[in-house]
Computed example of a mutant assay.
Amino acid sequence: MNSTVEILGFAREAAWLPWAVQYFFLIGISTAAFFLSLPGFALRRASWAGASRQALLVALVCGITAPVALLSDLHQPGRFLNFYLHPNLRSWMAWGSFFIPLYLGGLLLYAWLCLRPRLAALAQSATDPRLAALYRALAYGGHDNRSAVKLAALVTALGAVLILLYTGMEVMVVQARPLWNTPLLPLLFVVTAFGGALGMSALFAAVTRQRGVAPLLNGGIAATQWLLLALLAAWFVSGLTGLSAPAAEVLAAVRGSRGWALTLAWLVGSTVLTLWIARRRPQSLVLVALLALHGAWAVRWIVLMGGQAIPKMGALFGTYSLTLTPDGLLGIVGSAGLALAIYIVLTSFIPWDEPAAA
């Protein structure tokens, strides 16, 4: 008796490109950094004054850059407009088009209310009359209205929570991608977003030589790395025990793959290294910051790009090569350049190396 074995293999190009990774990376860091700004500005805790000021700057830089990456991923602004012209309220992606303006609008209002006293002080100290007039107009009286700051913080917090929720859910609900289809994914994005926000705040603090905030930020980074290891362990246990069918499917698909084994070893090893340095060198800023940012980026790259490489059917892994094109490396460099330009503009116009007003 003869038997026939048919092996299927379909190589598909990635549908979600690095623009998506950049958007998830930047918007996650922005929302997490906003929450890190609350202790210093909304709650007026003196120990958080310097760290919260850097966190607010991170929230603005990444929050303004993120929508550009999103629009680039859609390839034309008209596609984003269709979310409003023809809303599909059963889609998490469609809901995101409403959550993004809520968060960004609230963030800009919150930042302005927090910075009004500083703008008024700059108007008084400016030697150029035209610059002084500009600062005075932006300060709009310069009153430190704590009630208004808390109200704006509440609105922005609602938008930030919704952003964190939808960015995790719109990926998790894709059942065709087993690496995405896990309830742990939104938590994984949230934890790494806070790790990246703490890392970016530490990097900005290092630029302005505010080493006094290092122990506070490194303590937070260490906590996020513990949580990341716990989530990774929970995912593996759920896959090995069969509690999660998608996780078990992923483990079966990548069994014997040297590339995936190296990827896992790299992620776990870099996470442990970040944790070790953050605990052993609490005064360090740059190295821990770069490692924390690497972890936040690596998780999103592995999930979004690696998740598309796992075959839906058959035995052939998909491949993606990072090319020097606007959809590849050039786009990543361009987004980094835009974020740097926004950072330069904001820091040139307003000093951020002073503690928040108490």
Rank of each mutant, 00 (worst) to 15 (best):
L185H: 02
V191Q: 05
G195C: 05
A197H: 05
G199T: 08
A202R: 04
L203V: 01
A206L: 02
V207K: 14
R209K: 15
R211G: 15
G212T: 04
G212W: 02
V213E: 03
A214I: 05
A214E: 11
L216D: 01
L217E: 09
N218H: 07
G219W: 07
G219C: 05
T224R: 02
W226V: 14
L228T: 15
A230C: 09
A233W: 08
A233G: 03
A234P: 02
S238T: 01
S238C: 06
S238M: 14
L240V: 05
L243W: 15
A245Q: 06
P246N: 04
A248G: 13
L251T: 00
G256K: 12
S257Y: 14
W260H: 12
W260L: 04
A261R: 10
A261H: 06
A261S: 15
L264N: 10
W266S: 07
W266D: 09
G269N: 02
T274H: 04
W276F: 11
A278K: 12
P282Y: 11
V286D: 05
V286M: 09
V288L: 10
V288C: 11
V288P: 12
L291T: 10
G295I: 09
G295Y: 00
A298N: 14
V299T: 15
V299A: 14
W301C: 03
I302C: 07
I302G: 05
M305V: 15
G306L: 12
Q308F: 07
Q308N: 03
A309Y: 04
P311G: 06
K312Q: 15
A315I: 13
L316D: 08
T319K: 13
T319R: 15
L322P: 06
L322E: 05
T323A: 15
T323W: 09
